[in-house]
């Protein structure tokens, strides 16, 4: 019962933020934000990734990643060959469009000889 004040504070904070959203990135009105549940950027096609990938695994493995289209295609292939993913049919290219656009290599740092500054 002594936790009541904490719970009220929590309910207030829930109005502003989702409990399952581990990321706290600054809002940028030009870019779609992350889905509170999966962390996926809510750009064109994101629901497809949620539908077909989230049944088995967290999408943190996607949001941590940066790959070009052919490597994303290889990932889907591996998921189908050994991890139990079913054939995706015509949505496969839509999924690849989404992954290529939102989780590309170029978003990731950088020349490895230049080590990121630490703070």
């Amino acid at each position: 019962m002594r936790q009541l004040p904490a719970i009220s504070a929590l309910l207030v904070s829930l109005l502003a933020t989702s409990p399952l959203n581990g990321r706290s990135e600054p809002e940028d009105s030009s870019k779609p934000g992350p889905d509170p549940l999966t962390g996926l950027v809510m750009a064109q096609g994101w629901e497809l990734v949620r539908t077909h990938c989230f049944a088995c695994h967290s999408l943190k493995i996607v949001t941590q990643a940066g790959k070009d289209r052919s490597n994303w295609a290889k990932t889907l292939q591996k998921m189908q060959q050994s991890e139990g993913l079913y054939p995706l049919g015509e949505v496969e290219s839509d999924i690849l469009d989404y992954l290529e656009k939102n989780y590309p290599v170029s978003d990731r740092p950088h020349n490895p000889k230049i080590r990121r500054p630490i703070y």
């Binding site: 493995i61 941590q64 990932t75 740092p109």
Partner: peptide
């Protein structure tokens, strides 16, 4: 996490 191009998997 320090490799580039990034490798898949947990960073």
């Amino acid at each position: 996490a320090e490799y580039y191009p990034p490798a898949g998997g947990n960073q």
